[in-house]
Write a protein that binds this DNA or RNA. Structure first.
Length: 645
DNA sequence: TCACGGAATATTTTT
DNA sequence: TATTCCGTGA
């Protein structure tokens, strides 16, 4: 662990990186191009501050994923020593959560509030929706998924629901009033039942800092140095939180790339990075423009693509990796010939010695890979599709966790609903009644013991009450409580799913994880904010020795990654850019950046493919032109090619 | 009021 | 491909 030699910053870093790492006080904006060693720079800066004697706990490092922050601190610890692991921070959401638990009372909130993930908030919306619709009686009311998207967008962009609908969902305008009513109901319900969705965490933190100067001063005096990764992906609320935390010191270093801002649909505002110097006067700007990833032809093409962006910090990436083949644009006849071309090319590369896991196929939307997946199966090429399946969102995990969640927050209506619907003969109406009866007792989850309705006798309700009685009467460790729930739930699981062995394994693994926690709420918080992302059951069950697999991924999920060879399929006008973005300039700009992100994933080889003509059923349009982002690029930068047959 | 089955629908998703 | 939603019969 200990590294007694001094860190050799001069050898490890290029001049720009070094400037950023050695930067001392004041606001700093690092524009870090794709593949320019952004993580390296942050890591070295953490190490340097700690080496200089700055207390690790007074450094706050905020990121978007748990993986990113762990990775950086681990690498910093390797450079210096494990003091670096003590640096404060994590994700925006986990930081917000920790702060809110501490000061919950200031906001009139229970300390044991529940965190709703996307599935939970959709469930809640769906629950509340039934009441609204029966009143207003509209057909073609948006689905819960769309409703959650609208609400989240409103929160993230600091807009009203009406504005969001009129701007982005005009086809729901006829339901405007009902949707607004539902939104208000949703928000009220969350407050009354101590539920926080992801967006609330940020909004409440911002409110806390704004409304309570004493708390703001206390928190901001804790952190002498603040660093933010992926700043281009912050939304207005997050930018405001940073501003409020910066306090008088203004020692804020943000790192990002405006050209890689691709999360506007989630409320990210890439203008935050443009405006940073205005918010923090005296900002020093450092650009990292040397790319360590791609060969020159790929970089030249990427530069041409992003050149067309209207608003950006100008930067020209360069590389010291000359040579390499030109990127290729391949025109195929049909969707299937596109797939067959990709399969054939992958075979060829693989036979020439490129491991499958060094090859990725990227696409704009998840369903774009369906046909390719069929061809890959036929060709017996193993692959993994990333970003698809979410372990923590699978029903059996959510069922299990729901039983634990009502223990810490007995008002958690979403979980009660979930728990009760598992029982025979109990549907949404009965569940609602029982939930109200539990609350009426005003004795926490113990209210369940005194619930008495006719239906309740014949259903499995007794078993459920027994479970809570057991937990209530016996002092239990976290794991023991988990085991009690597990023993109760497995019988339901076996009834409900024919693949229960795999799911049971998942739960057993989850019990193992629980052993690491001292309290149930700590466990639940991590499951909501920093969950494990693989299915244990699946990895043990599919005893597959193959770990060399081709990667299929959406472009969004590919950000930050790199491969020897990258295929970008469906480089077709109407697909990429998406048909939904064609009539809005801002959306088109984002599609352009998305294409840039896609292209800059490749180290050696880059292929774009498109079918020459397809009928898009959703829009009723024929799509037959290559993506505008690469259509007119000269042949000395992008080679054109047509599949035969 | 619940359970079930068929028809309709679908951009992207770090928390 | 996988959900979600809605109508039907018990």
């Amino acid at each position: 662990m200990k590294n007694s030699d001094r860190i050799s910053y001069n050898e490890a870093l290029n001049p720009s990186q070094l400037k950023a790492v050695n930067f001392d006080e004041g606001p700093l904006l690092v524009i870090a191009g794709a593949g320019s060693g952004k993580t390296r720079t942050l890591t070295y800066r953490v190490a340097r501050l700690v080496e200089k004697g700055v207390a690790p706990s007074s450094i706050l490092l905020l990121t978007f994923t748990r993986k990113a922050s762990l990775e950086m601190l681990k690498r910093a610890a390797l450079l210096l020593d494990n003091r670096c692991e003590k640096v404060a921070g994590g994700t925006f959401h986990s930081f917000a959560n920790a702060t809110l638990r501490k000061y919950a009372s200031k906001l009139g909130f229970r300390r044991d509030f529940s965190i709703l993930d996307r599935v939970d908030s959709e469930a809640l919306i769906s629950m509340l929706r039934k009441e609204i619709i029966s009143v207003s009686g509209h057909r073609s009311f948006p689905r819960k998924h769309s409703l959650a998207a609208i609400f989240s967008r409103a929160a993230n962009k600091v807009l009203t629901v009406a504005e969001v609908i009129l701007n982005d969902y005009p086809h729901f305008a006829s339901n405007l009033d009902a949707i607004i009513t539902l939104y208000n109901t949703y928000n009220r319900h969350k407050v009354e039942n101590f539920l926080c969705d992801y967006d609330d965490l940020l909004v409440y933190l911002k409110t806390l800092l704004e409304d309570h100067q004493d708390i703001r001063d206390r928190i901001s005096s804790l952190y002498h140095y603040i660093m933010v990764d992926e700043y281009q992906d912050t939304n207005l609320t997050q930018a405001e939180i940073i501003r409020l935390l910066a306090g008088r010191r203004q020692n804020v270093m943000v790192v990002g790339d405006d050209s890689q801002s691709i999360y506007a649909f989630r409320g990210a505002n890439f203008k935050n990075i443009m405006k940073f110097p205005e918010i923090f006067p005296g900002t020093r700007i450092i650009r990292l423009e040397e790319n360590y990833r791609s060969v020159q032809p790929i970089l030249s093409l990427a530069n041409v693509i992003i050149e067309r962006a209207k608003e950006k910090y100008s930067k020209i990436l360069f590389t010291r990796r000359p040579g390499g083949p030109l990127p290729v644009l391949v025109r195929a006849d049909t969707e299937n010939s596109q797939s067959r071309f990709v399969v054939a090319k992958i075979r060829e590369l693989n036979q020439s010695g490129i491991p499958l896991k060094q090859i990725a196929v990227l696409f704009r939307a998840n369903f774009h890979s369906f046909d390719l997946e069929i061809e890959l199966n036929r060709a017996a090429i193993p692959f993994v599709k990333v970003g698809g399946f979410k372990f923590i969102e699978s029903a059996h995990i959510k069922d299990f966790l729901a039983h634990l969640r009502v223990l810490s927050n007995p008002y958690d209506s979403v979980c009660w609903q979930r728990i009760l619907l598992l029982l025979d003969r109990i549907g949404s109406k009965n569940a609602q009644k029982i939930y109200e009866a539990i609350l009426a007792e005003k004795s926490g989850y113990a209210g369940i013991f005194s619930v008495k309705t006719k239906k309740v006798q014949s259903s499995g309700f007794k078993g459920l009450a027994d479970l809570f009685a057991l937990i209530d009467s016996t002092p239990m460790s976290v794991t023991q409580a988990g085991e009690a729930v597990f023993n109760y739930y497995v019988s339901i699981l076996k009834d409900k799913y024919d693949d229960h062995p795999k799911r049971t394994k998942d739960l057993e693994q989850l019990l193992n994880i629980m052993g690491r926690y001292r309290t149930i709420s700590a466990f639940l918080t991590d499951m909501a904010l920093e969950p494990p992302n693989t299915s244990f059951g699946a990895s043990f069950a599919t005893d597959d020795p193959v770990d060399d697999r081709l990667i299929l991924s959406t472009v969004h999920s590919a950000k930050g990654l790199e491969w020897h060879t990258v295929f970008i399929i469906w480089a077709l006008e109407g697909r990429f850019p998406s048909i939904h973005a064609l009539h809005n300039e801002e959306d088109l700009e984002e599609e352009l950046r998305l294409m840039y992100v896609a292209a800059t994933r490749a180290k050696e080889n880059l292929f774009f493919t498109y079918p020459s003509q397809i009928y898009d059923r959703a829009s009723g349009m024929v799509l037959n032109r290559p993506s505008r982002f690469i259509a007119d690029i000269p042949g000395n930068i992008l080679k054109k090619y047509t599949t035969e047959g």
